[in-house]
Amino acid sequence: MLINNQVKIIFLFVLFSIPVPAIVFLIFGDIAGGISLLVFLFLSYILYRYSGKILLRWYRAEKVASLENISKKAEISPPDMYLFDHPLPLIFTVGTGGRYAVALSSEAMDMFDKSELEILFAHEIGHIKNGDVQLNTIVALFAGSFAAVSTLALWGALFMGFGQNYDPAPRFIRFFSMGLVAPPAALVAQLLVACSREHVADETAVELTGNSQMLVESLERLKHQVDLNQVGVNPGHAHMFPLNVLHVTELYDIHLLLFNTHPSLESRSNRLKEASKKI
């Protein structure tokens, strides 16, 4: 799985790095094409090396501690723990090159008790142990950047005097721009991120904590809170969270259907019940 994920990462960066240098080569010749290729390779290295930090800055997350205990059980290096403000109870893990960070929203910190947080952290540790995080991070950077274009279009419309963000004109502009960027952004997520990774992370969490029921209950509580507070998140980041946090409430949100890479909570609950019998 880890080797396959590395191949996917290389494929994504090749896809990013080749087109522009190829065009420059055809128009301006060998030297210009070679220089542009070197520039894009350097940019690819920077994006790979710092993608986790970029996403943490995206959410204005701040480091508060390290996850020592649960990491010791999993026999991995402890990731750093970050906190960020958000009205939804979110948790995600980012990082590349063996350095990882688990980010927790302020709402999740307030909502879950110590035992529930421990098992949610165990789920994230499962993603680290199973080699999911590097690919998740790179996909979130690319797909999230594509998806952010629609938000930029909305703000551009507002600054140009098209009214408020709930008025028809700016919403249509956002809908139109999202229609352009959603297919490639969602295609990146759907092709590269496997929904089975959540099942494996769930099973790892149960192995580390021995409590499948609490994981199911914590995920159900998280889903209930997300359903009650349908706050928008960048759809290109949706695969990083423990379950699907995207909601289609009207036609303007129809593109969000393309970004769901999570198995149903019911299927995960059934798998966890089976896994708990083996412990």
Rank of each mutant, 00 (worst) to 15 (best):
residue 90 L to T: 05
residue 70 I to G: 07
residue 145 S to A: 11
residue 150 S to T: 05
residue 276 S to T: 12
residue 231 V to L: 15
residue 99 R to P: 02
residue 273 K to Y: 13
residue 49 R to P: 01
residue 228 L to C: 02
residue 142 F to S: 02
residue 33 G to S: 03
residue 211 N to F: 05
residue 42 F to C: 10
residue 254 I to W: 02
residue 88 L to Y: 00
residue 148 A to F: 14
residue 184 P to Q: 09
residue 63 K to S: 12
residue 181 V to S: 03
residue 27 I to L: 12
residue 227 D to L: 08
residue 27 I to E: 10
residue 170 P to Q: 03
residue 40 F to V: 08
residue 123 H to A: 11
residue 132 D to W: 00
residue 157 A to Y: 04
residue 78 P to M: 08
residue 97 G to I: 03
residue 152 L to Y: 13
residue 258 L to E: 10
residue 269 S to C: 00
residue 184 P to A: 08
residue 106 S to W: 01
residue 117 L to M: 15
residue 234 N to S: 10
residue 125 I to S: 09
residue 264 S to I: 07
residue 210 G to D: 02
residue 152 L to V: 10
residue 103 A to E: 07
residue 271 R to F: 01
residue 162 F to G: 00
residue 184 P to M: 00
residue 75 E to V: 13
residue 170 P to N: 06
residue 4 N to A: 13
residue 65 A to H: 06
residue 211 N to D: 15
residue 214 M to H: 11
residue 206 V to M: 02
residue 31 I to S: 14
residue 28 F to S: 08
residue 272 L to N: 00
residue 132 D to L: 09
residue 174 R to C: 04
residue 33 G to D: 01
residue 225 Q to F: 14
residue 140 A to K: 08
residue 105 S to L: 05
residue 193 V to S: 06
residue 65 A to F: 09
residue 203 E to T: 01
residue 133 V to Q: 04
residue 75 E to L: 15
residue 185 A to W: 05
residue 241 F to N: 06
residue 179 G to I: 05
residue 13 F to Y: 10
residue 226 V to W: 10
residue 22 A to R: 06
residue 159 F to H: 11
residue 171 R to A: 04
residue 159 F to A: 15
residue 217 E to A: 11
residue 91 I to M: 06
residue 65 A to I: 00
residue 138 I to R: 00
residue 116 E to G: 10
residue 100 Y to G: 01
residue 81 M to I: 15
residue 37 L to Q: 06
residue 48 Y to P: 04
residue 176 F to G: 05
residue 278 K to H: 14
residue 106 S to E: 14
residue 50 Y to N: 12
residue 229 N to K: 14
residue 232 G to N: 13
residue 180 L to F: 14
residue 112 F to T: 03
residue 127 H to E: 06
residue 82 Y to I: 00
residue 48 Y to H: 10
residue 278 K to C: 08
residue 126 G to S: 05
residue 39 V to K: 09
residue 105 S to W: 02
residue 84 F to T: 04
residue 249 T to W: 07
residue 247 H to Y: 07
residue 73 K to M: 01
residue 189 A to N: 11
residue 41 L to M: 12
residue 268 R to S: 00
residue 279 I to P: 05
residue 177 S to F: 11
residue 277 K to I: 09
